[in-house]
Each structure stands twice: as C-alpha cells, then as structure tokens.
Design a protein around this nucleic acid. Structure first.
Lengths: 356, 356
DNA sequence: GTGGAGGTCGTGAACGTTCACGTGAACGTT
DNA sequence: AACGTTCACGTGAACGTTCACGACCTCCAC
C-alpha cells in the first residue's frame, strides 16, 4: 500500500562527496562549521559571525576565518540553517509540456509572483503523464510548502499523493476540485469566438479538441453550448480529438475532421498549436484560409502573429494566470479567504487577425 | 562591502503560519512530530515509523497516529529531514528569457538530466538583467548545491556572488571562463551556414547580431571569420545589433541594416527570433524571401518551420545542451574530470528550408 | 583602585528529524 | 522452568546551524 507520507524509492541516499575539492583522497564529507572553527582556532559562533557578516567580530579574525572557510570549501548547510531560521518557502510547479509556449509563460508569471514573496520554485515537467504527475507530488509532498500545477489525475488520487500540502490546480473549475483553483473562463471566451465566426457568416463549424473524446473539458462544452445557442448543427462528428496538444496533433485532427465533414467552413482549435496545425493541413489540401476555411485558436501565443495567415485567437493573459495561482496558494497556506469570481478567473479576449 | 557568504536583504524572516488550519486563532506554529506523538500517546519514533511507512509498528497504532497527524495537519520538516538524511540535491537554473522558446527547451534537458540524478531544480528568470543574475546567485549560493545558467556578468563578479558553489555557465568558451562550461560550437555552425549562402551565390551578407556592438560574441566573430574566408566585403556596417533577442528586435535591426546596406542579398540572424523579425521587415518592404533576400537563422526553433517562408537555420540540440550542463556540473561537484571536446560541445546542424 | 562601558568571543540550548540501540511483553520450544 | 525469538515501542544521540546569554578583556572616568 502506498502511504501518503512515505518517501518513494528514488529518494534514496546518494553518496555525498566534497564539492570541487582537491581530489585524490576520494570520498570525503563536506566541511562543517565545526571544522572551520577548529582549524581557525575559534568557536562555531565566531565562524557563524564571520560567514554571516554579523557584527561583534574583530576584522582580523573575521578575515582569518573566511580564509579557512575558503580553504575547506565550507558552505553552510541549508538544512541546518533552515531548521533554525524559519521562513524559507519552496513551491513546486508542475507543468505538462515545456515545449508548448503556453506553459513557459504561465511559469514566468508563477516565478514573478513567487519571487515577490521571497519563495523559490522548483519545476517539474510531467509530460502530460499521470504517473509522472504523481511522482512529482510524491517529491513535492515533502520537499515543498505549496504546490501549483496542471494535473490530469482526479482530485482523490492527487490528494493521496500530496499529504496535506496546500495546492492549487490550474484550469479546473472551482466546483470541480477540492483544492484551490485558478483558471480560465472558457465559456466566456469561446462564446466570443463562436459569435465572431457566426457574424462572419459561418454555419458549419467544427472543433479540434484537446481532450479525450470520452472526457469533454470546459472548452468543448463551451463550444457545443455556443454552437447550439446559435442554432447550428452539432453532433459528435463535428468535434474530433487531437492526439496531442501540438501542431502535428492539429494537422492530424484537421485531416480527420475534413474527411468527416467536407462541408466544414470554420474550425475552432483547442489551442493555438492545434489551430496552426489545422491551418497547415487546410492549406496543404488547397483550401485558402480564411476564405475557404476560417480557423480560430485559443491561447494567444506570440507564435500566432508570425504564421501565415496570422491566427485569430482567444488571448489569455498567461502570466496573470501564473501570478494568480501563486496568490491563491499563498492564501490557502495562510488561511485567508481564497480569491473568487472575477478576481481569480482569467477571461480570454478575442484577438481578430487574418485567419478568421 | 558585500560578503560572499552573507544572506542578502530579501532573505529576511517571514511570519510562518499554520497551513490551511482551521483559522480563527490567528498565527500558530506548525505541528511537529513531537506534538503528534504527544497527542497520540506514543513516542516520536513511533510517529516517524507510521509516517514513513516503516515496519515495526502495529497497524492499529499506525492508523491512530496517522489520524492524529492528519488532524494536526502535520507535515515533516524538510529541513530536519535533510539534516539527518543526506543526499537531497538542489540545483539552481538561471535563464535569461522564458519567452524565447530556446530556453524552455534547454530547461527541459536540464530537468530531464536532473531528474535522472534525483535532483530537484529551482528556476530563476534573470530577464537578461545583470543585477537579477546576481540576485539569483545570492539566493542559490546558499540554497543550492549546484548552479547552471546563462550569465552576462563576467567571471569574477559571478564568483563573488556564489561562494564556492559548483557552477556551469552556458555558451561561454571553456577558455573564457574559470567555471565549468558547456556550449555551442558557434564557429563550426556559422561556417556551414555562410558556406551555404555563398554556394547559393550570395556575396553581400549582413548580420543581425544579438550582442552589443562593443562586445562581440562567438557568433559574430565566427560570422566575420567565415565571411572573410570567402573573400567577401566586410566591415562594421554589415553587422548591426538587435536591441533585444526577439522578433521585434530583429525587425528593427533589419530595418537599420537595410538602410545602411541596400545592396544586401542575404542576412544572418543571431537567433531564429531575430531572423524571423528580419524576414518580416524584408517582406514589409516588398522584398521577396529568399529571392530578393535570403535569411538564415540560428537555434532551430520549432517556430521556424511554421513561418512563411520556412526558416533555414543552424539547428541546435537544445535539450542535449541542458543535459550536458547538468552532467558537467555533476562532474564538477564530485571531482571527476569535466567533459571536454566533442563530448561537451554541441555542434549546430544546417537545416535548409525555404528562406535561404 | 573601583566601576562601568564597549568590544570580542565562547557555551549551552534549541530547531525537528532519523538512527542505533535498548527494553519489555508475548509466545513458543525444549 | 528456562530460554530464545519476534514484535512493538521508547530513549539518547546525532545532524549543522543560530540564538540568548554570559565571560573576559581593555579602556577610560572618577
């Protein structure tokens, strides 16, 4: 049975060696404050004073102590330090895919906000793999004071692996999770986007989804709702899943959608990468974008401005998303009221460019 | 005077509060193993056994202890743990710009390699700011066991701020730094690229540099050497600096270069982002790429395949670069011989696409 | 000479864990 | 009845640092 609190296997001991010490005598433990004190002929406290630039020390002895410290390659143990001086906060950040430009930008927001609080953040790339998510949590559950990230695992599984650490899951509705939540108002965004397409005369709109076909997410549901609201035809055949959240995935999905629904006149991509892939497949098939086929993305990546034609998209303030996540988890861990409503929810903005 | 060892200002204490505890009684210190032991009527050791899933404990008491632990929201102190069980390694990673897709990919490599070693890595975005680099080092110098990153600061300044922590600087020649180094063989790459341009008949080649005009880097020097070797005209007017490593920077630089050298027939960008910017400016001015003006990039970003025309570039295995950096710093801290020569040096590969 | 002040330095305790032992009790075995 | 085993649990020590306090020396004023 897996204990919530237990270390996992790869947490084992590792042989510690002296850092860049004059090698030759093999393994050797790191110098401690005591070693320095002894060699310098002073007490631990004096070493501490020298090393920490405190007062109450003779400049001469200070210099001598520092010299010895350099000689022994002494570096204070962050563990011993952390034990006695509280307040060093470490947050864990779990991202599904560093290659998708969306997430580095979220990370930038997280880093910014963490820095303002004096936190440090350790990053883990889960590669959209449930097991790797749990590996991350097993680590973070006893290496971090707070966790922020994207997760595929359901709440209860997550909870089992992060014994009590304050956690914020991104892009999961606040009523869909027991953890702190920060996310995107997909419904509001998608409604804008579909309205724009309809306004341009489109009536046959498909979607290239990023979620599995049996597990519809907010974006697909918002899409279906919006399409339905405009009285357009809609059934399963209008939405095809992309095998992955990438350009290649979008290319494949678009091919499939075009085969299933040749009468298609506009396509909505789960994210910008998929949308770009869609454009490429469309053009490869001789369709002009946007004349023969309009394409709408979601995310607002910088990339969208660079492709041909430039991508119309629902822009998300990714940096703000990251900042909010940190804000939220900070509230969680201090017992404040969590952010709710408009304060904690990022609303996509329609950015009209050439593709739709 | 700034002491190498001293904490910096923003390292101050922060009021610790109970994490998501039933609030109401305000500030309250975290529960310790002793609190749990007391409330559960057992010894510390028994709590430790329960929490760590060790043997030698009655299932019933174990359950009772875990119950109490949950009640008190007990989480073991990573500092106390780290003090007694050695081997938890933390590496610091300093990146200049998360918005440039180049660096997340390097980071992915670093993360991969670090994970294989059981290390955790904390990330810091320096935003290409010398002062922020030093802030990072002030933190890492006593929060990390190893540091890897991109730096603008010269060696001696860096050394002052990272008292003795094993460090690898990326993309600084091994003879240009006293630290561990991992980088790109810019000369080999650029030579390929320029040869390609010359082969295509180009004789008027300019460069959009990413380094300051008074501080030429390896790429510019390699460019000048290659151009000279082919007997092409070359002086200061053929290379203009880009104000930043971005598409916008490239656009501006290209405008300047085109003004200075209208007879230009090919341009070499410091990186892909700048090269893409160059293409945009060129096309905005009515030049056809590559017919009127060929553009060559450097980095091999995925982005290059998506723009129109697709970017010819010198592709770098960024992930490998990150992996090598970790490998190198690991060697440093265990006293092994550092990687040298071909093993530790990434050679760019010319990828010919449409733009040149 | 006495007292106080200020500067320099050392000593025990504390931080929260885990590790290496030690201690009983319960249960069999001979 | 004596003894060994196993199980469940507790006790002191150790990890490496900082903090609060006290000791000592020197210098100067009275």
């Amino acid at each position: 049975m897996h204990s919530v609190w237990a270390d996992n296997a790869d947490d084992q001991e590792r042989e510690p060696r002296a850092g860049q010490a004059p090698r030759g005598d093999g393994i050797r433990r790191r110098a401690t404050i005591h070693d320095v004190a002894q060699l310098a002929g002073v007490s631990r406290q004096t070493v501490s004073r020298a090393v920490n630039d405190k007062g109450e020390i003779d400049p001469a002895t200070k210099e001598r102590v520092l010299e010895v410290a350099r000689l022994l390659d002494y570096r204070p143990s962050r563990f011993a330090r952390g034990l006695v001086r509280k307040g060093a906060v470490t947050a864990g950040l779990v991202l599904p895919d560093l290659m998708n430009p969306f997430f580095p930008e979220v990370a930038a927001g997280v880093l910014e906000a963490a820095e303002e609080r004096g936190w440090q953040v350790v990053v883990w790339d889960s590669r959209t793999d449930e097991n790797r998510e749990l590996q991350a949590l097993d680590k973070f559950s006893h290496q971090a004071d707070a966790v922020v990230g994207y997760f595929k695992n359901p709440d209860d599984v997550l909870a089992q692996h992060l014994g009590g650490v304050p956690t914020v899951v991104l892009e999961r509705g606040p009523h869909q999770t027991r953890f702190g939540a920060v996310g995107i108002d997909a419904a509001a965004g998608v409604a804008q986007g579909i309205a724009h397409l309809v306004r341009a005369g489109h009536r046959r709109i498909g979607m290239l989804d990023g979620d599995r076909i049996d597990a519809p997410g907010p974006r697909r549901e918002a899409f279906l709702a919006a399409v339905r609201q405009h009285g357009l035809p809609v059934d399963g055949s209008w939405v095809v899943p992309s095998p992955e959240h990438s350009v290649a995935g979008g290319e494949a999905a678009m091919a499939q959608l075009l085969d299933a629904r040749p009468e298609l006149t506009a396509a909505f991509g789960f994210n910008d990468l998929i949308a770009v892939g869609a454009m490429r497949t469309a053009r490869r098939r001789g369709l002009r974008v946007p004349d023969d086929l309009a394409v709408l993305g979601f995310d607002g990546l910088a990339l969208g401005e660079l492709v041909e034609p430039a991508l119309t998209t629902l822009h998300i303030d990714k940096r703000r998303l990251g900042r909010l996540a940190v804000e939220q988890v900070a509230r969680l861990s201090t017992g404040q009221d969590p952010l709710t409503g408009a304060d904690g929810w990022v609303i996509p903005q329609l950015v009209v460019r050439a593709s739709a």
